[in-house]
Design a protein around this nucleic acid. Structure first.
Lengths: 218, 218, 218, 218
DNA sequence: ACGGGCGGGACTGCCCGTTGGT
DNA sequence: ACCAACGGGCAGTCCCGCCCGT
């Protein structure tokens, strides 16, 4: 779901829960509150017909303040509290795993985390992605950035013993599996198990690309 | 590059170049003209710092008219005269080809067509995609839609003897190859052969997914 | 309901049903058709959210043609087939009637005509007047013009043996009764008899102004 | 003249001229300034031929800001600094006065206030009402709303010992007197005493409705 | 008479920079 | 330091005018 809102915390800082951390917690709570109000309004009047001002009013803040918490209206939908933990997930994987397997595992867990947290909300979000083109575009953009980030983290961690292009292209392709999985899952009203659908999608990918093994392009 | 501007003319009608066709030609010429002016301005002042009004002025039309030709400012960059010919390309492929091979071939030819037409302009466009996040997002969104469209066309043409999910996920994944290829090609200032880079990217894809063959997810 | 769409027929022309008349009939039919489509759309999406183009599409005409039949979007709501017959109604009144009585009678009959024609549609219209301020304003403007016109016709017909100011002010004041009556009638979902409500409103007027009989202003 | 721009400050709060009040004053000053520029331009080029942008330029603000002070271009003409004091005027009237007398008195004083403040500007405004139909319509709409508001205030203040319909219909009818008075006064180039003309108009009303005393409708 | 293309003005929504108040 | 109000700027939509071709 990735959004651009930076934590500002440089990665090497010590983990003592300083005042920064506390402030960050407070900001997160506020964001969640705004998001909740926004989703209520979106559900009742639709995304386009809900203005930022209405969201701000519902959240009892000024419109200006809204933008301090979310850089754009789109980000209210895109933002996810559990987004930026890809590095940790990566660290948990064995170093000798093939890159594609690592990528799949990281995505699976990332998706699973968001899924288990609040399936209802995820469904609402996915529906918005489906119906509002700009949101879908932003979502895809985030997946894409995730792919790039994954590739560069992987290169770092394996001391350049990987093909960056390959890592990136595979990671991004797995994004296609995520998208398709969410799509199918949403069409079934969230009744299926999302991760099962995701696995099916990645299997389709594996299947499909086997067909290309010994074919000339063109 | 796909954009939403529809031709409205159903593809199989014979059409003796009626007035509709003529009008459409004229519209295309106007679009090309506007696009040319826009690219000039983007090159000199950047995308964000160029207003629609400036583009319209440069093209000697009113802002209102600009929006009649391009629904949004973004579409000036996205639109491509040779976009909507995917159906034809599809028709040209043998029916017994594996879906993934068809998808790759169609994308390759589509990309190649745009490439050969005007490499300079393509380079300029790709640079805009790289530097302006909203444009990149829209580009990805179009690729995604292309994937869906491909899948549904394929289902039609093979009389449902294909797995739609697989077709779609593979087609979209190939979009990742396109994106990566354009990226790399652009970084080399357009000196490499774009299609060669694309082939390299698809090979990476094939390679990568082979690694997943007999692995359990997780 | 009065709208500005002129019949172009000067009042003294002979009443032979010439080709003009036939054309006018056709125009009226078209207008009714457009109006019907428009009301359908207004009912389902609201006045503001319905564009002229949508109305035109629904009526299978071009937007340009829409404006040939109705000078503005507002006029679709305002226009009434039976508007311009105030002169005839006036002619039917006895010459020795007090002006205020004439005014009341003319308004009552005019209102009654529209009412009996199609109470449902009248209800829909009144609801639009209530909810869309611009329409209400235009409606009031038309009543006002009606008052002026009434006054000048009366002066003509009585050979200036009336006080024009008085005629006008009384006629316009009766407009207030019409407005209030429609309002009350609409609030009761059109269940009451509109003319009865109108009579009640005019009685209130008579009552109220009796209170002012021997009072100094201020 | 009534316009929708609300004060938001509840009327009974004591308020030691807090920042809200100060801000409101500032807003009023800005509005007056914009209005002055607008009237200058209207006088020289006419209402329709003056664009909002020109007004904004003349007032050294942006067009966007113009719309923050006046919701529509029409409101520049309609708005009046002394509009929203009807409640105070109402409070000043004795409770045992007949409703119609109260209504007349309130309107008279309201009109008188605006008149004395700046007869020249009033004349200019009235001329605009006469010549620009949309403005006239909006003016009538405001009078009408004023009538409704008067009625509901009256009901409140008399603890429902009044007939609301009567109050409203009388108040609105007095609006007709205002309109006619302004009309006549303007035709005399503002040479007459406006309030005298108004009194004459209300007398006509009283006179006219006496004629309806014992007549059956129809 | 109809359709279509174009221009232009009013207006709204998003977003950002600044200022002043707590 | 945070936040509210304020002002500015741009994208985009709608109404409605005009002109031209049929």
């Amino acid at each position: 779901m990735k959004s651009e809102m930076g934590t500002k915390t440089s990665p090497q800082e010590p983990q003592v829960a300083g005042p920064d951390d506390l402030r960050e917690r407070k900001r997160t709570r506020t964001r969640l509150m705004i998001q909740a109000e926004a989703f209520r309004l979106f559900a009742s009047k639709g995304y386009a017909d809900t203005t930022v001002e209405e969201i701000a009013d519902a959240a009892a803040i000024s419109a200006r303040t809204f933008f301090r918490y979310f850089p754009t209206k789109e980000d209210v939908v895109l933002w996810d509290e559990y987004d930026p933990l890809m590095p940790q997930l990566l660290d948990a994987r064995p170093l000798d795993e093939p890159p594609a397997a690592t990528a799949r595992a990281v995505m699976r867990e990332s998706l699973g985390g968001i899924y288990r947290r609040d399936p209802e909300q995820l469904l609402a979000r996915v529906r918005l992605f489906q119906s509002v083109p700009e949101l879908r575009a932003r979502f895809l953009g985030n997946l894409d950035r995730g792919g790039e980030m994954f590739a560069s983290l992987l290169v770092q961690r394996l001391d350049r013993h990987v093909d960056e292009l390959k890592a990136r292209v595979v990671a991004t392709a797995l994004g296609a599996a995520v998208t398709a999985a969410l799509d199918v899952w949403q069409r079934g009203d969230g009744k299926d198990d999302l991760l099962a659908v995701f696995d099916q999608a990645t299997d389709s990918l594996v299947d499909g690309f086997r067909e290309l093994e010994r074919t000339d392009p063109g």
